[in-house]
């Protein structure tokens, strides 16, 4: 109303003010999250590690000293050299720079992790919603199939699948995704089941909201927190599982720079050439630790039970 009488206020600032008014509550919640999160040392370490590895994923090809070492070049004259100023993590049996390969291995691991977790979510979340909301025989079918998958250890099952399909990075991803989705069905099913009987869902039904509306506006937004927490934890676990498959030779194949495969080959050169296995091992350790700490920290801030009014 007063905008016309005060020309100096730019429309841009006005829009910003309106936006801040609309999102005032959200901004405040975000600040509260950030505050709570930053007060926990372990959460911050987790976040730091994850950010560091994401940086390596994006910037890796430009910051490594010998990018060609990840694509199968051979420099036998400098093979198995200990860590030095030129080769921070030493070199492997064909003279490739281990530092380069560990950094570029981040890409491979994160690709596997992201794809596995994404496929698991894409399969698991809709199935969980259907099972939680439908009830009856449909729920029974979905949940019993889920139970079957959950009753077999994931890694053993994926191992069997890769053994059948043959080794390779794509098959490893496929196998891991296939054993990963049931966890999401379980999580979302129980969440949807409890949300279904919440009064606000009843209220939405009473004003005539249909199923799609209830799912997308009332159930899913309230499932985001547990999904984010589990997703973060699972990133670490999926990377570990992918490395395990690589270790027994069923995952990524040389010369692809993959941490599990590197440790596996480096194992033959232990203990004299310790650096070969150690540095990829540390990379796996820090990644999994980072995602777990981050997941714990996220749970602490997103869990409504620990949040005050």
């Amino acid at each position: 109303m007063s905008a016309a009488s005060h020309p100096p206020v730019s429309p841009w600032r006005q829009a910003l003010a309106a936006w801040r008014l609309r999102h005032h509550s959200k901004l405040r919640t975000m600040r509260l999250y950030a505050f709570t999160f930053s007060r926990s040392l372990s959460s911050m370490i987790g976040l730091g590690l994850v950010l560091l590895f994401f940086f390596l994923v994006l910037a890796g090809p430009w910051i490594v000293p010998y990018p060609e070492d990840a694509t199968g070049s051979v420099n036998l004259d400098i093979k198995l050299q200990p860590p030095s100023a030129e080769h921070w993590f030493g070199t492997d049996e064909v003279g490739n720079d281990i530092y380069t390969r560990v950094v570029l291995g981040t890409q491979v691991s994160f690709q596997i992790g992201l794809i596995v977790v994404s496929i698991a979510m894409i399969l698991g979340i809709p199935l969980g919603i259907i099972a939680g909301l439908s009830g009856g025989w449909l729920r029974e079918v979905i949940m019993r199939v889920t139970d079957v998958f959950l009753s077999v250890p994931g890694l053993v099952l994926s191992l069997a699948i890769v053994a059948v399909l043959g080794p390779g990075i794509l098959n490893a991803i496929f196998a891991l995704a296939l054993v990963w989705w049931p966890g999401y069905v379980r999580l979302i099913e129980s969440k949807a089941l409890s949300l279904k009987s919440e009064p606000f869902v009843d209220a939405a039904r009473a004003v005539g909201a249909g199923m799609p509306r209830i799912i997308f506006f009332h159930i899913l937004p309230n499932c985001v927190s547990p999904i984010v927490v589990k997703g973060s934890m699972d990133m670490g676990l999926a990377i570990l599982a992918a490395a395990s498959l690589g270790f027994i030779g069923l995952g990524a194949q040389p010369p692809h720079p993959e941490w599990g495969a590197m440790i596996s080959i480096g194992r033959n050169y232990l203990p004299d050439f310790w650096w070969y296995s150690t540095f990829p091992g540390i990379a796996i350790y820090l990644t999994v630790l980072g995602f777990n700490l981050l997941g714990d920290g996220l749970r602490d801030i997103l869990d409504p039970k620990t949040r005050s009014r």
Partner: peptide, 24 residues
């Protein structure tokens, strides 16, 4: 239409007041 007992539980915690009143 209906009004439930627990006003807190009958509003979607992830949605604004605007959303809840606008829904019908």
């Amino acid at each position: 239409q209906i009004v439930f007992q627990d006003p807190h539980a009958s509003l979607n915690p992830r949605k604004t007041i605007f959303f809840s009143v606008a829904e019908p």
